[in-house]
């Protein structure tokens, strides 16, 4: 079976700087794939090629292909807005809009043309329930999202992606601004979400990768050094460099 996301000979440049070097990997559907490696190794850049959000930065260039459901998303005929509806993203810091809880969650469906109030209500409720926010927030839907705790804000950002109806969720170090207890809660949420979504998570926290992911890729200086099942990466890495990083001798 073909992978949900297939990266083929992927290289990426910021100006003359080569941030990704010929990366090849296949990401399985309905599983959690973690990208680990030291800062600046290109793991975030790699994640950002999967919804073409990297294109917001001037002077970048991409070689190779990113296939999602066997379609190259860098084809000229790809509708980028539709692509981003299918591939949602959660960022490092909770970045709720300075709008109400309701308007944050319904933002995605609205920009894609949904107008019906009852339909939007249903989606907001479903998304908040899926992120375990409904009970706490159902009476505070009109409140500014910025007044919530960081934990709630980050889960709201996940709910906002779920409301899009995405199939794939990309998370760029989603817990780096959160405390350990909150982090565990988000991880538990991800484990539940993987039954329905394909999840790719960038993390600098190796324990986190070990706890939540099914597959792990270790990156170094823009190269994908090793990519395998997480248990294999952590217990029996084939590459010396991976072993050095895992055992904490480096990074």
């Amino acid at each position: 079976m073909a992978s949900k996301i297939e990266l083929v000979g992927l290289s990426f440049y910021y100006g003359n700087f080569m941030a990704l070097k010929n990366v090849n990997m296949g990401i399985e559907a309905k599983a959690i794939t973690a990208l680990i490696g030291p800062s600046g190794c290109g793991k975030s850049t790699l994640l950002r090629t999967m919804n073409r959000i990297n294109e917001l930065i001037n002077g970048t260039r991409l070689e190779g292909k990113v296939l999602i459901d066997e379609q190259n998303i860098y084809d000229a005929r790809t509708d980028v807005m539709e692509l981003r509806e299918k591939v949602g993203m959660v960022f490092q810091r909770p970045n709720c809009f300075p709008l109400s809880v309701y308007d944050n969650v319904s933002y995605g469906p609205k920009v894609h043309g949904m107008k019906e109030k009852t339909q939007l209500d249903t989606i907001v409720e479903k998304s908040l329930k899926a992120t375990w926010l409904w009970d706490e927030l159902k009476d505070k839907l009109k409140r500014s999202a910025l007044s919530l705790s960081l934990d709630h804000q980050q889960r709201l950002c996940i709910a906002r992606v779920l409301a899009l109806g995405s199939e794939i969720i990309l998370l760029d170090e989603p817990c780096s601004a959160l405390d350990p207890i909150t982090t565990l809660r988000i991880e538990k949420l991800l484990l539940e979400l993987k039954n329905n979504y394909t999840i790719v998570i960038v993390t600098h926290n190796m324990q986190q990768a070990a706890r939540v992911s099914d597959y792990s890729g270790y990156m170094l200086l823009g190269e994908l050094i090793e990519f395998d099942q997480t248990s294999t990466i952590f217990t029996n890495p084939k590459d010396k460099r991976t072993e050095d990083y895992i055992t904490g001798r480096f990074g």
Binding site: M81, M89, P98, V111, L164
Partner: peptide, 25 residues
């Protein structure tokens, strides 16, 4: 910039991003 980034990541067009996020701010 992060507001624009999220709006684009949710599939918003440039004009939607301007009218719904940038101008209100």
């Amino acid at each position: 910039f992060s507001y624009r980034e999220v709006s684009f990541s949710l599939g918003g067009t440039k004009w939607q991003t301007i009218t719904k996020v940038v101008l209100p701010g």
